[in-house]
Amino acid sequence: MDWGRFAEQMASMARDLLAQDSVDATLERITASATELVEGCDAAGILVLHDSKVETLAPTHQLVVESDLLQQRLGEGPCFDAAHSSQGERVFRIADLTGLQQRWPAYAPQAHDLGVGSMMGFLLYTEEQDFGALNLYSHKPGAFTENSELAGWMLASHAAVAFAAARTHAQMEQAVTTRHTIGEAMGILMGAHNLSEERAFDVLRRYSQEKNIKLREVARLICERGGLT
């Protein structure tokens, strides 16, 4: 493998990731980069666990979705394990699933039927938190080498930082939008009912609690309707 060329590609990918304008676009670029840069990779996706439910993000092929759903249904599998950061491996490489029926007795043969020959997975994490697992698939057994694993690990390291940055940016944008909407809603209430700023916010808060609706949603409704009714 030409590591000099790979380093150039990684640097280009890192800049490209930071240039994306949304979390979804960042994730799609991550998984597309995996198929472009990691030798042997036919498909990639990011698996996130919500308790025992899986969410597949930015899959490049239907095989990724089918594999994740199979692991959810069976409650076992390498990607399922990797996404459990508290008990999973940060990196795994499986040359041939047919030799691992003892570890995943239900998943291994059914994954083989789906067309999975070999797999790799990398936990996406920073010092602050885990984000799920980047999973790479090949239709061929033995497709992933030690070089493939190293390349995947380097890509996943960049991906985790980009994922964290994109999500933080999205959260900040949402917070700014929410503050603006709440301020606009308070202005509507203040003008319509001759309320002080404090009283207008209290009306919003009380309505939110009584109706069990998030404050930002109450504010949005007021802005759309011109009031609470």
Score class of each variant (00 low, 15 high):
183 G>T: 11
92 F>M: 09
192 A>H: 13
52 S>L: 10
96 D>W: 04
211 K>W: 01
204 L>W: 04
192 A>K: 15
77 G>P: 01
163 F>M: 04
189 L>S: 07
43 A>P: 02
74 L>I: 13
135 N>V: 12
195 L>I: 09
9 Q>G: 14
133 A>E: 03
44 A>R: 01
147 N>V: 06
174 Q>T: 07
15 R>M: 12
223 C>Y: 04
135 N>T: 11
113 D>R: 13
31 T>Y: 05
212 N>E: 14
56 T>C: 12
200 A>C: 13
114 L>P: 10
185 A>W: 08
116 V>H: 04
62 Q>K: 11
101 Q>T: 14
48 V>K: 13
139 H>M: 08
8 E>Y: 02
201 F>R: 15
24 D>K: 10
20 Q>E: 15
138 S>M: 05
55 E>M: 10
181 T>R: 13
139 H>R: 15
22 S>N: 07
77 G>R: 03
40 G>D: 05
44 A>G: 07
51 D>C: 06
163 F>T: 01
171 Q>T: 04
196 S>H: 05
104 W>P: 12
29 R>F: 00
228 L>V: 12
146 E>R: 14
193 H>G: 00
125 Y>C: 11
148 S>G: 09
50 H>R: 11
25 A>T: 09
186 M>I: 15
123 L>P: 00
206 R>D: 15
228 L>Y: 08
218 V>Y: 02
172 M>H: 14
115 G>Y: 07
100 L>P: 00
82 A>Q: 08
140 K>P: 00
179 R>M: 09
196 S>G: 15
23 V>L: 14
134 L>M: 06
108 A>T: 11
149 E>H: 07
78 P>N: 00
110 Q>H: 07
36 E>W: 01
113 D>E: 15
12 S>K: 10
164 A>G: 03
104 W>E: 09
133 A>T: 15
56 T>R: 06
39 E>W: 04
90 R>C: 01
59 P>F: 05
166 A>N: 05
14 A>V: 10
60 T>N: 09
82 A>V: 10
67 S>Q: 13
38 V>F: 02
124 L>G: 01
38 V>M: 06
164 A>Q: 09
139 H>K: 12
213 I>M: 13
171 Q>R: 12
166 A>R: 01
199 R>M: 12
34 A>E: 08
196 S>D: 11
47 L>Q: 10
190 M>T: 06
67 S>R: 08
72 Q>H: 09
53 K>M: 09
78 P>T: 00
147 N>L: 03
183 G>W: 01
178 T>F: 03
223 C>M: 09
92 F>K: 04
64 V>G: 10
118 S>L: 07
14 A>Q: 10
95 A>R: 06
197 E>F: 09
92 F>Y: 14
17 L>R: 05
71 Q>H: 02
152 G>W: 09
107 Y>T: 02
209 Q>V: 14
219 A>P: 11
207 Y>C: 05
3 W>M: 10
220 R>E: 13
83 A>T: 10
167 R>C: 01
131 F>M: 15
28 E>F: 00
172 M>I: 14
30 I>F: 02
179 R>Q: 13
104 W>K: 03
82 A>E: 08
95 A>M: 05
168 T>E: 13
